[in-house]
Design a binder for these strands. Sequence first.
DNA 1: TTGTAGGCGTTATCAA
DNA 2: TTGATAACGCCTACAA
Lengths: 348, 348
Amino acid sequence: MGSMSSIKEVAKHAGVSPASVSIYLNNKNTKRVGTEAKKRIEKAVLELNYHKNVFASSLSTQKSKLIGIIIPTILPLFNNDYTNALLSGIQIRLSSFGYGLLFFPSSAKSSIEIVKEQLEKSAGCDGYILFSTGFCDMKHILKNITEIEKTKKPFVTLNIPEVDAAINQVLIKDLDTTTGVRYLLDKGHREILLLLGRSGGEHAKYLRKDFFRITEKHDLNFNDDRILYGNYSAIDSYNVIKSALRVFPATTSICCMSDLMASAAIKAIKDSGKSVPNDISVIGRNNSLYSTLSEPALTTIDLHMHEAGLSAANLLLDSLSGDAATKKILLTGSLIERNSVQSITQEE
Amino acid sequence: MGSMSSIKEVAKHAGVSPASVSIYLNNKNTKRVGTEAKKRIEKAVLELNYHKNVFASSLSTQKSKLIGIIIPTILPLFNNDYTNALLSGIQIRLSSFGYGLLFFPSSAKSSIEIVKEQLEKSAGCDGYILFSTGFCDMKHILKNITEIEKTKKPFVTLNIPEVDAAINQVLIKDLDTTTGVRYLLDKGHREILLLLGRSGGEHAKYLRKDFFRITEKHDLNFNDDRILYGNYSAIDSYNVIKSALRVFPATTSICCMSDLMASAAIKAIKDSGKSVPNDISVIGRNNSLYSTLSEPALTTIDLHMHEAGLSAANLLLDSLSGDAATKKILLTGSLIERNSVQSITQEE
DNA sequence: TTGTAGGCGTTATCAA
DNA sequence: TTGATAACGCCTACAA
């Protein structure tokens, strides 16, 4: 694999010094290099197919214009709607400021090991964005933050349960079960089922606790049987709802943690001989592209993940430009009312 | 922003030479470094929070373990199901071989400028994967390939119309309109509508040509009115189908280029007072998670984009390990028969 | 307006 | 088993 041509070769070819080449290429308007020399450099660059070596440049300037994205998961990246929406916002914003994105590999199994391994390979990045995933419990998260703090580089945490520390964090909070379940309660529902994604992990624990806390306020004494897990899969959600409807035949509403699972729940309800929303109301989450297409159109919660990504990028950019203040951004979701939820007073 | 500790500092701290530290850290089992020295190095690394600087290391070894992902688009990345599925496959495979992914920013507007700009910043990567997008026509694609060839690094093109050159390419071909339209023709349909995504661009042109070619074989003399554009959006697809059904009331089938658009088409058909598949058959594309949830369940074509990503990564890995042979991989999709298409002989 | 020289952090070669 | 030393490609004083 032929070696790239270097700045030295360009310099020789153009009959100038490497310094002139470097200075000119980094600022075409410089007065430091004469018009004639500029032309010769241009020509040499073209003829030799010169491309700047980012690594050498980064090494020299101590700035890479690269942001490391740390996602502690062993699952495929780019395969999850939430993560993708977040990344989309991050990329758009960072890109417009000339920053590239860097994803490191890891062969480790635990969240902590993954983060460590990724950071090990990553010194040289200008900053980091740390995701939290279902794999992380609070202990892991704190350790990961400690680890990332050691790099002394600017960083932002994203979508992590709130951490009590002076770090940049973007939180998407109180949207999880709370908003959906409260909405159902407000509509008069008392027989509620909760359909979560994956069981285990800090996130599921957090949602579970929250569900009980809210429902208890309404003197409802629910237990774990009412919490179901659909694994973010259509078929699993369908099956689990179908059998749950046998266990809880009085069910009037289901709060789902994704629109896909909500759509599957609707199908299960219909196939159980009931109708939505007349017999049972369903609320989804994430306002996905499909949410207007279900029958009835899905009432759902828009989490604004794209905007969360933008916010994270903004915090990082602030930090990168020397702003020492750490900030905490709390994003709230919006309830999108469509036709899958009915007030229970109307119903009777 | 505190500077990172370097290998020199670790060496000093441990009372050994930088060379020993480097060698030990890259191979903990080396005989080159004594047991005592190893321990002291370990200790120093921990105490100084040493992290290797990838850039310095890459500069020295001329290997970065980083792959540049070149996607000539001005749209947000990570916001497109196809791209994401491709990336997912790429990441999984490359990651398991220790390669990281690098996404470069670009402020340019044209496909060619974007690729150029991204490559300009990217010398130092071990290899590249070049996507094609709706933005590229054949001329652009060829120029982009020329540009990337100049880097002399291994690269693979993905999802590009076949290029007549000895380069590594992964093609997802003959699945576009062909498979879907042929299937409808085989089922006896002659009144066919084609619902594409975005208009303009080489891809749309290619699909259009293909559509006419296939239907002409069956003595159908279709014109451009039968080709509709849904912009991969539910609402646009719904509207365009609804009005098309007025123009072509005899329509018996619609071939859609995405499951989302197919679901929207189904809704439009129902709202027009017709039924699926009794009156009109619908075929989707991509076997998305939602495809079992539409009513009726969607017959669709699984494009195996994840596998295409894996294949691209495999080709690149071969190339990276010195395999000079260029390969061309042609992937075919699978037809997933569910309930949205009916044979027209049965119908009458 | 230009060239020389030293350094960024790591690795590889060589001599000890 | 170990330590100097040079080199990777680029940038930036500094000197001219």
